[in-house]
Design a protein around this nucleic acid. Sequence first.
DNA 1: TCATATT
Length: 371
Amino acid sequence: TGLSSKPLNSLIILQIISTMETQVSNGPSGTSLPNGPVISSNGATDDSKTNLIVNYLPQNMTQEEFKSLFGSIGEIESCKLVRDKITGQSLGYGFVNYVDPNDADKAINTLNGLKLQTKTIKVSYARPSSASIRDANLYVSGLPKTMSQKDMEQLFSQYGRIITSRILVDQVTAGISRGVGFIRFDKRNEAEEAIKGLNGQKPLGAAEPITVKFANNPSQKTGQALLTQLYQTAARRYTGPLHHQTQRFRLDNLLNASYGVKRFSPITIDSMTSLAGVNLTGPTGAGWCIFVYNLSPEADESVLWQLFGPFGAVTNVKVIRDFTTNKCKGFGFVTMTNYDEAAMAIASLNGYRLGDRVLQVSFKTSKQHKA
DNA sequence: TCATATT
């Protein structure tokens, strides 16, 4: 046919295939087989009960950490952290498709709202992928400062189903509206109708008209913005470690954000640093292994993610359980990628009161039981 | 005059 020698034609073929896949996955809902995937009459699998979208992931979370976190719930059929095609940067969201619909449900119940670093992740069922749900995100400006998120949703809901909405607030004055926000509709045509109906209009009782337009798409940045981003990430890589005082400040902010509690650990970072090298197992493969003692019998992996996630990159967590009762034996392990973040977590969480227990947290040593 | 929601 001559197609094989022309890259452009290959691209077209790929697009055709991808269109076919889209059509197939949007086929009629099918029948559920016992303990198996839902198969529709045309042979395609229906992922609506197993496939999740995860939003507001920390920027530095890797595919491996992502899989590790959601794999702690149950067997994963597939998962993907979505990255920018050009820069490779995480776009802050991903997909997890479980084998068992019950695990998808469990993941929503236990991981939705989990605080990781500065983010609160959102876990929900993914809508079937289709072109009609893309580019349905609107940027709204000129909103009255008194307008709440609920008010804004009420205004826009006449044009379609709203998936998310947000009003940006001033960081320093703690929560005063900046008069700008976002509305994501289920369908792009709903967003288009909302622009036609509301752009340049004055909301009831408002003094000024609002501006409604499509939001900037993060995956199609300008060349200048791309260069800026590349430069900034490169600069961060080559910047030395933050001063300890600064780290302590960041640490308190993270803790306050995550737990709403301020606490001070008697252990300083410097004393932790002096610990390094004498008694540690050291960075084994993936990172630094941390020993966590005095967990309750009911403790599970999500507790460890919640405790350590705010401090930085966590690649793995494990609760050690009794073989017969399946209850936690009182301890577990956490692996963190970066030494500084691990030391910070230990300095803050050692002596941390979790329920009626006081945790003991340290780097894992080669002979732990010898106290 | 914009945080990161459809692989």
